[in-house]
Simulated assay, not measured.
Amino acid sequence: MSALFSTAQLRGLTLRNRAVVAPMCQYSAEDGFANDWHLVHLGRFAMGGFGLIIVEATGVTAEGRISYRDMGLWKDEQIAPLARIVDFLHSQGAAAGIQLAHAGRKASTPIPWRGGFTETEAEKRALGFASWTPVAPTAEIHAENRNFTPPHALDLAGIRNIVDSFVAAARRAEQAGFDTVEIHAAHGYLLNQFLSPLANKRTDEYGGSRENRMRLVLKVTEAVRAVWPSDKPLLARLSVSDNRPDGCQVEDSVVLARELKARGVDAIDCSSGGFDGGSIAPVAAYQVPFAHAVREGADIPTIAVGLLGDVAGAEAIVAAGQADFVALARGALDDPNWAVHARHGLGATDYDLWPEQAQRVRERDRALGLRSFQPT
């Protein structure tokens, strides 16, 4: 039996397999609202057999978005379009997750493919353009001359508002029907900024020591777990290493993962990097060691991410206990049916993971002698 296509249990949630679609920003929302693009973009992965599909980084406040075209969940009106997506994912047998995020000092940036704020006045009106001053642990820009804006430093009232905003967004995610939420504490965004000495220069109880730098993400986790249903799992995404010698290291994230587990987090989504100057070679499966280290060091299920489209390699990761789940982003974009294809590649002779509407694939395979119909 395939390890990758075995079922998995996280609290009361049963996943049909361990293939996950990682959050992918689409820069296609207006005023934070999901639309038909998001429905089709995410729905095709459910039709393609993935077990869990996690919606892109979704701003818990308007100013917490990476760009003005990011999704949001800071007001009740944003619930219904997301509920429509959740219902479709469920109808295809997939579980639905959403990544709750605040970009901090990496907010208010341009749409990536534009290369800068190049919108005409007409485009600004059509696209719902907005720009704003970001917030951060301290008033230091992420990087100079790269379309980032100098941020304001959060005071204690601002920090309390961040916690409250994550809680409010989690409540809305529950109303939308999501099976899990993922707290985004990676990639140099706000919670990661508090965690890392590269961005956190505070001298109060939220800065300095590792214990102090962990304080905000632990407060957010406690508060979200308190309102998130006890039978639904809670995930957290970490940059396990900042990939810089003066930043957070694997051992820091192992300590953090233990604390997150103690506060009710059920799995850690293990990525890395996010700060200017970080360096790691992006080759196939390059972040799997991070997932393995956290899994072993904190005794918690992990999700491996990072160029994992090779089917045999993904199977080996789960089978060897290097991670409990394998997540694809770019690989899923390239092949939305990766999961059904991978299952055949690992020896499945049935077509049960395909949608009913796609069962003619079996007829084609029979006619052409493909997959399980290959001549012996």
Rank of each mutant, 00 (worst) to 15 (best):
L4E: 01
A8Q: 13
R18S: 01
A19L: 15
V20S: 01
P23M: 14
M24T: 12
M24F: 06
C25R: 12
C25E: 10
S28F: 07
S28R: 14
A29C: 15
A29S: 15
G32M: 08
F33E: 12
A34K: 01
A34H: 03
D36H: 09
D36R: 10
D36S: 13
V40I: 15
H41M: 06
H41N: 05
H41S: 04
L42R: 12
G43W: 07
R44W: 03
A46P: 05
L52W: 00
I53K: 01
A57I: 09
A62K: 13
Y68K: 10
R69P: 02
D70V: 08
G72T: 10
G72E: 03
L73Y: 07
K75E: 14
E77V: 13
A83S: 15
H90G: 09
H90I: 02
S91T: 10
A94Y: 02
A95Q: 08
Q99G: 07
G104M: 01
T109Q: 14
G115Y: 02
G115H: 06
G115P: 03
F117E: 07
T118I: 15
E123L: 11
K124R: 15
R125S: 10
A126L: 14
A130H: 08
A130R: 12
T133W: 04
P134S: 11
V135T: 11
T138F: 05
A139S: 12
H142D: 11
F148M: 04
H152G: 08
D155N: 15
D155F: 06
N161D: 15
I162E: 01
V167C: 05
A169Q: 02
A170Y: 08
R171C: 03
A173I: 08
A176H: 12
D179H: 06
E182S: 03
A185H: 01
A186I: 06
Q193H: 08
F194N: 02
K201N: 11
R202C: 14
T203Y: 09
D204M: 13
D204F: 10
Y206E: 01
G207W: 00
N212H: 15
N212V: 08
R215L: 09
L218H: 04
W228M: 00
K232P: 01
L235V: 04
R237C: 07
V240I: 14
D242V: 08
P245E: 12
G247I: 03
E251Y: 10
E259W: 04
R263S: 07
G264V: 05
D266L: 12
I268Q: 03
G277V: 05
G278W: 06
P282K: 09
A284D: 11
Y286S: 05
V288Q: 02
P289D: 08
F290T: 06
T302S: 06
A304N: 04
A304P: 04
D310E: 14
G313W: 10
G313F: 08
A314C: 07
E315F: 00
A316H: 07
I317L: 06
F325D: 02
V326L: 08
L328W: 06
L328G: 02
A339D: 01
V340P: 04
A348T: 08
A348L: 11
T349R: 13
W354E: 01
W354G: 00
W354V: 05
A358V: 05
V361D: 03
E363G: 12
L368A: 15
R371M: 14
